[in-house]
Amino acid sequence: MKNILWATLTANGNYAQSGPENPPKKETLDDFFTHAKAAGNFIVGRRTFEGMRGNGGPGPFADIDIVVVSQSATEIPGVKVVRLPEEALDYLKENGHQTALISGGADIHNSFLGQGLVDEVIFNVAPVLEGRGLNLLIDKDNYCFKHVQLLDCKPLGSGVVQLRYAIDRTVS
């Protein structure tokens, strides 16, 4: 199974934090919906999922398998809840998915990256600089690097640029 991590970053490399003063760009939301629909699923952390859910209802994700990785939640109606990244991937594989879209929350992203479970990353770089942001971490304790290969680079509109990289999982 191909595991794709999808994230929006700021121009200075932090995970983009959206809120009333910095709402997500329409182009990034549209891009996420496109990737989720193509994969037929997405994996997300509980806090990010609760923020996405808003006033409830399935919305545009009615026919998409949603997997929430959470250490505290045991059940959320309409979604599969697991405790570990590997459990999320196993669930999607058992349900016939060829691609897993890892989509939300710095902790979830860093967990999948740190365990070497990501084959490809899609970064939508938003035109904003952020002072205190959350960062990509592939190893919290040691200096390390991962080789990546640029697969695609394209503008999405409104100053958002998408970078797509393959990760070489054989070298760390």
Score class of each variant (00 low, 15 high):
172 S>Y: 04
91 Y>R: 05
5 L>C: 08
2 K>M: 13
129 L>F: 15
137 L>S: 15
28 T>G: 12
52 M>N: 11
121 V>A: 05
120 E>F: 08
89 L>E: 10
157 G>A: 06
27 E>I: 02
137 L>R: 14
58 P>N: 11
56 G>D: 03
105 G>L: 07
77 P>S: 10
109 H>V: 02
44 V>T: 02
82 V>Q: 08
3 N>W: 07
38 A>C: 11
114 G>T: 05
73 A>D: 13
21 E>P: 00
107 D>W: 10
82 V>N: 06
71 Q>G: 15
19 G>M: 10
76 I>W: 09
121 V>G: 01
155 P>G: 04
168 D>G: 05
118 V>R: 00
30 D>G: 11
114 G>Y: 04
94 E>A: 14
12 N>L: 09
165 Y>I: 00
39 A>M: 15
79 V>G: 01
24 P>W: 05
139 D>V: 05
27 E>N: 02
74 T>F: 10
119 D>R: 01
32 F>Q: 03
145 F>N: 11
124 N>L: 10
120 E>C: 08
59 G>R: 02
115 Q>P: 09
127 P>S: 15
28 T>R: 11
108 I>L: 14
72 S>I: 08
55 N>A: 14
149 Q>F: 12
72 S>T: 13
43 I>G: 10
73 A>F: 14
72 S>L: 07
67 V>L: 02
85 P>T: 06
41 N>R: 07
117 L>T: 02
88 A>V: 02
168 D>A: 05
157 G>R: 08
136 L>W: 06
44 V>N: 00
52 M>P: 09
65 D>F: 01
123 F>T: 00
84 L>Q: 15
28 T>N: 15
90 D>E: 06
94 E>T: 09
131 G>I: 14
18 S>L: 05
112 F>T: 13
100 A>R: 03
9 L>Y: 06
92 L>Y: 01
125 V>T: 01
67 V>I: 12
130 E>K: 10
167 I>L: 06
124 N>Y: 07
98 Q>V: 12
166 A>M: 03
83 R>P: 06
166 A>R: 04
67 V>Y: 00
103 S>E: 04
20 P>Y: 15
74 T>L: 10
42 F>R: 01
31 D>F: 14
104 G>R: 03
129 L>I: 15
114 G>L: 07
74 T>E: 13
155 P>Y: 00
155 P>C: 01
104 G>S: 08
115 Q>Y: 11
69 V>A: 01
3 N>D: 12
16 A>E: 04
58 P>W: 12
65 D>N: 10
76 I>T: 08
50 E>D: 13
34 T>W: 09
116 G>K: 03
147 H>T: 15
38 A>R: 14
100 A>N: 11
45 G>Y: 04
6 W>V: 09
155 P>R: 03
91 Y>A: 05
